[in-house]
């Protein structure tokens, strides 16, 4: 564990908590892409299958349980409890265009051709593009509530901090995982234009408005 990975995990935790607060407090999931939340639930389910078979630390297990529970809980809140507030019209990104290519790629590009390894690889590839429906929805609605932009900033920062963690582990542990690194870079790059808008607008108290 290093400070970058801890900061990344805490940023990820903060993002999920911000999202849950937003949905619970406003009793609405307006502006949130249910499709991205479904993809995140798939990412955690396929990645944390070793939850019971491969104990790493109490921290690791606790975070995995929280991420699994909160992502499935968010899907429940969006598609069942607050279904009436879910914005179907703007959440239209075709997620099969994300699921199929990442599934095929995980069968071809992986460290080991075993079920667990391929599912982990699929989860890594899927996570790198899972935010696309959400970013697409923000571009379609042309704006986002400030709490939603804080959620996106924390979520985008988490994998960016993981890149620093991978640089740290390469130099100090001689360790690197090219699949996680490439996917993590793609994932972080997808947030760049949002990061620019967040820093130039939201931090100045303005609402996140995308140029129409």
């Amino acid at each position: 564990m290093n400070i970058f990975r801890l900061a990344g995990d805490l940023s990820h935790l903060a993002a999920i908590i911000i999202l849950l607060i937003k949905i619970w407090k406003t009793r609405s999931c307006a502006g949130i892409s249910g499709r991205s939340q479904v993809l995140f639930a798939i990412v955690f389910i396929t990645r944390y299958l070793d939850l019971f078979t491969n104990f790493i630390s109490a921290y690791n297990t606790a975070m995995k349980v929280f991420f699994l529970g909160s992502s499935i809980g968010t899907v429940y809140l969006m598609y069942l409890k607050f279904k009436a507030t879910y914005d179907h019209n703007h959440d239209t990104f075709r997620i099969e265009f994300l699921l199929l290519p990442t599934a095929l790629l995980s069968l071809v590009l992986n460290h080991e051709f075993s079920v667990m390894e391929i599912l982990w690889t699929f989860s890594i590839y899927l996570e790198s593009v899972a935010i696309l429906p959400q970013l697409f929805m923000v571009s379609k609605t042309g704006e986002a509530e400030s709490i939603t932009s804080h959620y996106l900033f924390a979520l985008g920062s988490y994998r960016g901090l993981y890149i620093l963690n991978w640089i740290y582990r390469y130099y100090f542990e001689g360790f690197y995982d090219i699949i996680a690194i490439v996917a993590g870079c793609v994932q972080t790059i997808l947030y760049c234009d949002f990061f620019y808008l967040y820093i130039t607008k939201v931090l100045k108290g303005k609402k996140l408005q995308l140029p129409a």
């Binding site: 990975r5 491969n54 790493i56 390894e117 982990w120 963690n165 360790f175 995982d177 996680a180």
Partner: peptide, 10 residues
């Protein structure tokens, strides 16, 4: 040898 995949990470 260094592990090839980062399973200790979240």
């Amino acid at each position: 040898s260094t592990p090839t995949s980062s399973k200790d990470e979240l």
